[in-house]
């Protein structure tokens, strides 16, 4: 037994984190939540080598947890969704959006339906949706909840909980697709990128579930930094960081997000997200 205790202690000593002044970032990718440390450590290594400081990645489970870690300065740089970025900047005075994915300048959501509903792809959201059951993604997801709900309200002038017979939140896009495919819900709203990827991976049986409507385009995922980075790492650090991110062209790193490249962004780009969030009532 003492031998095992000894090994335990050695393990703890080895595992104990080293304390050093480092830049910490987090990212919640929209498609695969597993093996995050493995995948994002490569991004951290890349940023470290370009910036000449230690950059660490910490995995965060949910959007609100990411926002909270950002507010507490436990994370200084974060890859947020449209709505969570807005929330984070409201709660953290001085924080700014610095870059977004190329795809995020014109993001969209798909409404998908189980074949038993007999709904087919159309120009507008069909009024036949009334009384159906619907599953959104995470409660604070931009593509899985905010924008779909916004367009439902815009089209039908009614809150989703009065329009649909049952509303659920799956917590993530892959789960949304699985739940509509299994028929647990008749209709779902999903990030278009995740749909395309799952389709390519052969996880979708289009005889069971298919797209019925695509939303108009809106801005989504982006990098947000705290406002006090220059104070800590010297004048001009934030713009250096922004340039480093914009310069990323390593295919493997871009695939982690997954994005084809990063382009500049600022807080104003997300005005429409903020307005939509006010309209559906997730922001006061």
């Amino acid at each position: 037994m003492y031998k095992i205790i000894f090994i335990f202690i050695v393990a703890v000593l080895a595992a104990a984190p080293v304390q050093a002044q480092s830049l910490v970032f987090t990212a919640i990718p929209d498609n695969d939540e597993t093996r995050l440390i493995q995948r994002f450590s490569k991004v951290a290594d890349y940023l470290s080598s370009k910036l000449g400081i230690t950059v660490k990645y910490i995995p965060v489970k949910s959007y609100p947890a990411a926002v909270t870690a950002f507010r507490h300065n436990q994370v200084q740089l974060a890859w947020f969704g449209g709505l969570t970025g807005v929330q984070a900047r409201r709660l953290t005075p001085g924080a700014i959006a610095i870059a977004q994915g190329y795809e995020d300048t014109k993001f969209k959501s798909y409404f998908i339906a189980h074949s038993s509903t007999n709904l087919t792809q159309s120009e507008h959201l069909s009024s036949k949706l009334s009384g159906k059951t619907i599953i959104f993604g995470s409660k604070s997801s931009t593509s899985g909840r905010l924008m779909p709900e916004f367009y439902i309200r815009e089209q039908f002038k009614i809150a989703p909980d009065q329009f649909f017979s049952r509303i659920g939140f799956s917590g993530n896009h892959s789960r949304t697709i699985a739940l509509v495919q299994s028929g647990a819900y008749q209709v779902g709203a999903v990030n278009y990128q995740v749909w395309e990827q799952e389709l390519a991976n052969g996880k979708i049986d289009r005889s069971k579930v298919d797209i019925i409507w695509a939303t108009p385009e809106y801005p989504d995922y982006h990098w947000t930094v705290r406002g006090d980075l220059d104070a800590q790492w010297g004048e001009g650090f934030t713009s250096r960081l922004r340039q480093t991110i914009l310069d990323i062209n390593d295919a493997e790193i871009l695939a982690t997000f997954p994005r084809s490249s990063f382009v500049p962004a600022n807080n104003e780009d997300y005005h429409m997200i903020e307005t939509s969030a006010r309209i559906i009532g997730t922001l006061d």
Binding site: E33, T34, P59, K61, S62, A65, G171, S174, R175
Partner: peptide, 16 residues
């Protein structure tokens, strides 16, 4: 809810 314990990995695996 996001603390880095066994449940973190469990939930992520479940979600996917």
């Amino acid at each position: 809810i996001g603390l880095p314990t066994l449940g973190f990995q469990l939930e992520s695996a479940f979600m996917q």
